[in-house]
Nucleic acid binder design. Structure first.
Lengths: 238, 238
DNA sequence: ACAAAAACTTCACGGCGTATAGTCTCCTCA
DNA sequence: TGAGGAGACTATACGCCGTGAAGTTTTTGT
């Protein structure tokens, strides 16, 4: 046999079972929150014993990690696709497409959003490697690209700020920065701020803190995007 | 006896035990996350049986609810105090004081922040009444006051926005709005946006999503405040 | 056909929330 | 003063949970 073989019957069954475990876990999470992901519940749903899952995932945390990786990657795919699909010549449209894709995905996958950005599980500690850091990097890159697209317009507005950019220059964004050589530290800080803005509004909405104020969160988000584009000095139609 | 009596020895002991349960719970949460709040662990720490706690709190969720209420109230107290302490004549300083108090409290009580704004517990559902909605209302009121203080400066900037404020007018902020009759719907939307911005940056920081980019979050937050004051059209020294 | 490997089950342990029933201590009032 | 009762707490038990060890069945490669 061999781990490299891709056509073996055993490998196929194994992959299918693995996929089913993850599918059932995601579906349990969707219906009962991240805490509903219990090995016993998954096994019950699949007509197995809880311990059988240990043949596929070393521990429950491993399963959760895998789910986070996949969900995170799906989010990164979504926003990247929205970005790529919008015409490159119109920064305002691109930025709005990215942001709307972010919020749209979060609303469509609230449990996934909590899994990525919240406290996913009792005592869960994120491991070092894996796909999640990659996905996080892709999200940050998207945000940086967003600021990069806006920077020609926004630069003069931010030049007026009295902030000490030199203090910011060192090790600001370990991995993302080199991908945008034309974006100065001030621009990266702008990117992170925009990320924070969008994350905050979506997060408040997902966790129900806007609902209690009977807001129409979609309109608030649209207003955010309008003001964002304005504050970047971009012609909204551009 | 009597529920109204305040001096009874029994009542005093009871109050002390209740306070100790909450204290131990908060301390467990601080050391091991919100999930570490288990009745058995609390009882172990206190030299009691887990069931003894049922004499003080009907259920574990009741205990968590009480903790959330207290923590939430503490946060509201903190930001209100910071607001009140800053001179009323300087909107920029007041706004920054509020925001810095918010972030400062969150950093000092990260588990409390998660308890309030995150997924505090497996399957926990917030009850209707209690102090938490009050605290949430006070936070929102603080944000609205912030926008109200800035509005005289910010109004002309936001008047340029092409947004349909009339669509926003109805039921925007159920309870907070009446407290600020001079603040139009556009100002309330601004308040919520600012809230989202601050919440997003603090949330990313608390949950460790900024750390992976090796940012100095304090500086980023300060830059956020600088730009916020600027975007509101307020003289930073005012 | 047979041995190895993989998949899966059974049993067991400790921890969790919590329901029920029982015990012990202290206050109250006749 | 002493009996009754209320309140504080314990004991036991049930069904969840993750997980480890050992055993059983099924599949695979030679």
């Amino acid at each position: 046999m061999g781990v490299v073989s891709t056509g073996g019957r055993r490998e196929r069954l194994r992959a299918e079972t693995t996929a089913e475990i993850k599918r059932v876990a995601l579906q349990l999470m969707a219906s009962g929150g991240p805490d509903a992901i219990t090995l016993r519940a998954i096994a019950r749903e699949m007509g197995m014993t809880a311990n059988a899952i240990y043949g596929y995932f070393a521990t429950r945390d491993d399963l959760v990690t895998t789910l986070i990786n996949e969900v995170y990657t799906a989010l990164a795919d979504t926003v990247e696709a929205a970005w790529a699909q919008a015409p490159a010549g119109r920064p305002a449209g691109r930025i709005q497409a990215w942001a709307r894709a972010f919020r749209g995905w979060a609303l469509a996958n609230p449990e996934g959003f909590r899994l990525i950005y919240g406290d996913p599980v009792p005592g869960y500690e994120a491991p070092e490697g894996g796909a999640a850091p990659d996905a996080a990097y892709r999200i940050c890159t998207g945000i940086a690209a967003l600021a990069d697209a806006a920077w020609p317009h926004a630069e003069q507005l931010h030049a007026r700020s009295g902030f000490q950019w030199s203090d910011f220059d060192d090790g600001l964004l370990g991995k993302v920065r080199p991908a945008f050589p034309d974006l100065p530290p001030a621009g990266v800080a702008l990117a992170l701020r925009i990320w924070g803005h969008l994350h905050g509004l979506v997060s408040l909405e997902i966790y129900g803190h806007l609902r209690t104020q009977t807001v129409d969160p979609g309109k608030l988000f649209q207003e955010e995007l309008n003001q964002l584009v304005r504050s970047l000095g971009i012609d909204p139609g551009e």
